[in-house]
Design a protein around this nucleic acid. Sequence first.
DNA 1: TCTTAAGGTCAATAATCATTGACTTGTTGG
DNA 2: CCAACAAGTCAATGATTATTGACCTTAAGA
Lengths: 152, 152
Amino acid sequence: MNDDSMTSDEVFEAISHPMRIEILRLLARKPVRFADLKRKLRIESSGQLDFHLKKMTGIVVTDSDGNYTLNDRGYAALTAVDMVSRHGWQRRAYIIAFLTYAVMNVYFILMVPLGWWFVIFLITTAWILFYSYWTFIKRRIRLRRNGEISNE
Amino acid sequence: MNDDSMTSDEVFEAISHPMRIEILRLLARKPVRFADLKRKLRIESSGQLDFHLKKMTGIVVTDSDGNYTLNDRGYAALTAVDMVSRHGWQRRAYIIAFLTYAVMNVYFILMVPLGWWFVIFLITTAWILFYSYWTFIKRRIRLRRNGEISNE
DNA sequence: TCTTAAGGTCAATAATCATTGACTTGTTGG
DNA sequence: CCAACAAGTCAATGATTATTGACCTTAAGA
């Protein structure tokens, strides 16, 4: 297979199985040899590992010592996996940030003289506005999910 | 299917087919209805579209008007697709940037008095160092690829 | 020399995926 | 009322994917 002729869907095909994602994560840490991979994945079948490694041709290469490792497209795939995995946390992080903003300002309204409170209010509001823009416009995160397709 | 219980490999399964990636890109632009989707994909079979839309349950939802659209995980998948698609360009962009840096400095060495040239050299070198760090360490781009697995 | 391990390949089978085409159930315009 | 279209569902089929287990070759250690 020509390395440059790979399309996006082929990359995602290469990581659309739990074991292949585990392999991707293992190889991202450090290059690993065949038998080591088998042990770390807790499988006995060589054929199974062979099958999944062949599916990952185009993302996985062998170095001069015979260790399996990721090529640059493999690292791109890894960051794609991380992005999808962490996506739920971006929503949670925003909620926590907003609550912090709210609690902080209520506290300062009650405790701090007007002049100082107003400075804090300006700074934290500018911050939460920028963070909101980044979250909802740039990254297109939504706080509430839409309804699912009804097919059950 | 519970929306929150989706694993990464299921997301990638949902986009590991050319038609499903095309659907993802179409729905990212604006919500589309079933028959419109069929026309834009230039297919006649309703069953085929039904099959692929069902595979995308968990990233695709229907809004109140019956239009198909992406949920937040769908947009995460889209950015993953974009990242993988654009990956080749990150390498090219770096090469162009480096050549610009080199040509610019050669030009200024020849044309500009020493004092000014040194300022420009400092600024552009700081820039190329930061860009190199970002490219090779943070994003793990490689200029030359490693050898492929030999299995042909 | 015999055994064990590494580093795989291959064939058979079961399970899943993808496509086709027939079918259903509304809705809308003439 | 009828035709045409929207918005699907479903069964059948062939193609592909995933797993298992047998097999092979090479190298090291007892």
